[in-house]
Design a protein around this nucleic acid. Structure first.
Lengths: 141, 141
DNA sequence: ATTATTCCTATAGAAATAATAGGAGTTAAA
DNA sequence: TTTAACTCCTATTATTTCTATAGGAATAAT
């Protein structure tokens, strides 16, 4: 299960990808995505600090993707908010850490299972671009 | 990320699968898996209530798998402890629930992503049997 | 009887989640 | 040059989940 925060982040990024030509304010995004405004603000700040978004202050300011939506993936967004996607850190490429209760990592069946789970999840999340998400959301106009 | 509880449950079930012929006490499992004893007790109770384990009380009592390890999967264990494996309930088969912030479920790109994620995860977790986990853990004797 | 177990109930600190509040600073446009 | 629409920053807080621990009652084998 992912957090609401990560879900809202994905929604916001999809909305921004679908409106790539213009800068969107947090208000606009909150409205389009039914996301609590102040919570969204904090999320957008995180995404900006992680270099996934660019912001423009002042009147008619707002947020825009930092890179073309075809070059950004769902996995990047989730990692920015949630950290590693591996179910256990001992199976993570981006945040590896040995379990404290580990007896023999090479022979650990749970780790092997989580390595495969991570690969399966990554094969979806790291291949799906924000452009694809945006395109999907517009299938029904 | 899964909880320690789910990780311990998987370890315990793997240990039980690897010692299928006998009944193991919580003490034994705790020692073999480096799992906090009292915490493990609670976990084993959950697994028993979910019908994944059978227990025998009294001296020389303990726990054993409820079914042959070849017929039980990692997915079952995780669902017993954590609930649905889908990252969002709107993408779950076993615990479906619509998001409160949902505008149009059919057109939701995030949901579509999570449906695919769930399928990818399930293809690993629901295909890996406890027998396979036990066999892996014994590759290095 | 004794001892090794499961089983039951209760408790509790710590961390993460999911926000909300208020205002300071910035900028475009009226 | 004021105003309105924004982002940005710092707190605060309620709720839930996580990760256990404690103590003892019930049960069964030896």
């Amino acid at each position: 299960m992912i957090s609401n925060k990560a879900k809202y982040a994905l929604k916001a990024m999809t909305i921004l990808a679908a409106n790539q030509e213009r800068v969107l304010s947090a208000q606009e995004i909150a409205k389009k995505g039914k996301i609590p405004y102040k919570f969204l603000e904090a999320i957008l700040t995180d995404l900006k600090n992680r270099k996934l978004l660019r912001s423009h202050r002042g009147a008619s300011g707002g947020y825009a993707l930092a890179r073309p939506p075809g070059e950004m993936t769902a996995g990047e967004v989730i990692r920015a908010i949630e950290g590693p996607i591996a179910p256990l850190l001992c199976a993570s490429l981006t945040g590896y850490r040995r379990c404290e209760d580990c007896v023999d990592e090479e022979a650990c069946a749970v780790r092997s299972l989580m390595v495969d789970s991570r690969a399966a999840l990554s094969s979806v999340l790291d291949r799906r671009s924000l452009a694809e998400l945006a395109a999907f959301s517009q299938l029904k106009p």
